[in-house]
């Protein structure tokens, strides 16, 4: 029962409209969940629950939004930036996200920008293909 990327995007959009109370036209694939769409921490869990239901998948804690885990580890963060080790960890944990821009200046304040609509679509697509 393979879903096309368009179908996945459509479902993800519906999830975000419901969870964040945003309009369809606010959701571009580059939109960031926190910056552009105003998501707060509880909204991330809401989104996870809704994605699980919409796609019939199980999303383990930290798999989709793993950044908080990194923030609490001094090995991964130095002077407000991710260390090489931290970046390596992030790459491993977020294979579905393009990190090339972020790597040029891995400021932790910009980590929120990594959670884009596109990252969710990629994540769900990988997850469905792996199943």
């Amino acid at each position: 029962m393979a879903m096309s990327r368009d179908e996945i995007e459509q479902q993800v959009r519906e999830v975000l409209i419901e969870a964040l109370g945003v309009d369809d036209d606010e959701i571009t694939t580059e939109a960031t969940l926190m910056g552009d769409l105003g998501a707060e921490s509880i909204d991330f869990l809401d989104i996870v629950f809704r994605l699980e239901k919409a796609f019939g998948i199980k999303i383990p804690r930290e798999e989709l939004f793993p950044a908080e885990d990194l923030m609490n580890n001094s090995e991964f963060i130095h002077n407000g930036k991710l260390t090489e080790k931290g970046l390596a960890e992030l790459r491993e944990k977020m294979p579905h996200t393009d990190l090339s821009e972020f790597e040029k200046d891995p400021d932790i304040n910009k980590m929120g920008d990594l959670f884009t609509v596109n990252a969710i679509i990629n994540y769900v697509e990988n997850k469905l293909n792996a199943a």
């Binding site: 509880i42 869990l45 809401d46 996870v48 629950f49 699980e52 239901k53 804690r61």
Partner: peptide, 10 residues
Amino acid sequence: IESIAPEAAS
């Protein structure tokens, strides 16, 4: 209960 996880429930 629609969903329940270690950190939250819906």
